[in-house]
Write a protein that binds this DNA or RNA. Structure first.
Length: 289
DNA sequence: AGGCAGGTGGCCA
DNA sequence: TGGCCACCTGCC
């Protein structure tokens, strides 16, 4: 392996180890693993293979990549949102009047939402229906190995939708996709036949983008919101999954509310950055709930 | 050993 | 609208 030199991220991101783990491997992204022997994280986004290490004293994160040049470091700084005003976004959340939210935020200082390539974010979350993170990671790994470009020895990027469209449903099922294979295949065919569709979604405002996504088979409210939040950083998106249902029921007293109602509550109560609040609540619930 | 998991879509009232 | 169910697969 030819690794480039270690460099600090542009904005000196310094999460706690727990916040770093939650950001990389808490269900936003599915291609990171911690290498125990070397005490570092290794992951893939787009066609970039990279490693992350953290200063044990000040928590600052350094990054290097496989045969990386300047443009790869730029891509990494984009991926980690180094130009996003995280402090302002934190401050915009209603933690002053919401003690539970404040507790969640205090438990995960400097938590981030990654700015993942949209196409692969949609693909990963189409795999996520009724699956836990380890299973979703297996599906993504299989998709990459079988259909994606090799970006380093024995290391593959997730396939493009065009590459997914090359496969048939039967071969997709062999990748452990199960009943998701049929819809993933159909969606791949639609995207392959409509090359500017994903760009339209990225460029559109939240409501319009979501409407476009909901037309894809296998994409409902939850997956659409995850793809938009984690793949386009449209922070209004408030994915309602089983963890959020739990926390809103137990901590906010919203028993027996429909998912649509919960989603509306989220956007009203937490505001324009509701998606970031969701990530704090979600992380806390998984770790301590 | 059987139920259930970061859901969705179809069908019924 | 609201409730119920099938759907792959692997893990507890």
């Amino acid at each position: 392996m030819k690794w480039s030199t270690w460099k600090l991220l542009d904005d000196n991101w310094a999460p706690t180890p727990r916040s770093l783990q939650e950001t990389l491997d808490g269900g936003q992204a599915f291609r990171w693993k911690f290498l125990e022997d070397e005490n570092l994280w290794q992951g893939i986004f787009g066609s970039h293979l990279c490693q992350l290490k953290q200063d044990s004293v000040n928590n600052k994160v350094s990054i290097r990549g496989y045969q990386w040049k300047a443009k790869d470091y730029n891509a990494a700084n984009q991926y980690f949102g180094c130009k996003i005003p995280w402090t302002q976004i934190d401050d915009s959340l209603p933690w002053r009047s919401d003690a539970h939210l404040k507790a969640c935020m205090d438990s995960f200082p400097e938590l981030r939402i990654l700015r993942q390539p949209f196409a692969e974010t949609l693909l990963a979350f189409m795999c996520s229906a009724t699956k836990r993170i380890p299973q979703i990671k297996v599906m993504c790994q299989n998709l990459a190995t079988e259909l994606g470009n090799e970006i380093a020895p024995n290391t593959h990027a997730l396939p493009t939708w065009e590459q997914v469209a090359q496969a048939d449903e039967t071969s997709l099922r062999k990748l452990a996709l199960g009943f998701r294979a049929k819809n993933i295949k159909k969606t791949a065919d639609i995207i392959a036949a409509t090359p500017d569709l994903l760009q339209q979604v990225e460029d559109a405002p939240y409501d319009e983008a979501k409407e476009l996504l909901l037309q894809l088979p296998g994409v409902g409210e939850k997956i659409a919101d995850c793809a938009l939040l984690f793949g386009t950083t449209k922070q209004e998106a408030f994915p309602v999954d089983t963890w959020v249902i739990k926390v809103l029921s137990r901590r906010y007293g919203l028993d027996a509310w429909s998912n649509t109602q919960l989603s509306a509550f989220g956007r009203i109560h937490f505001g324009k950055n509701a998606g970031f609040a969701q990530q704090y609540l979600f992380s806390w619930e998984r770790a301590f709930g």
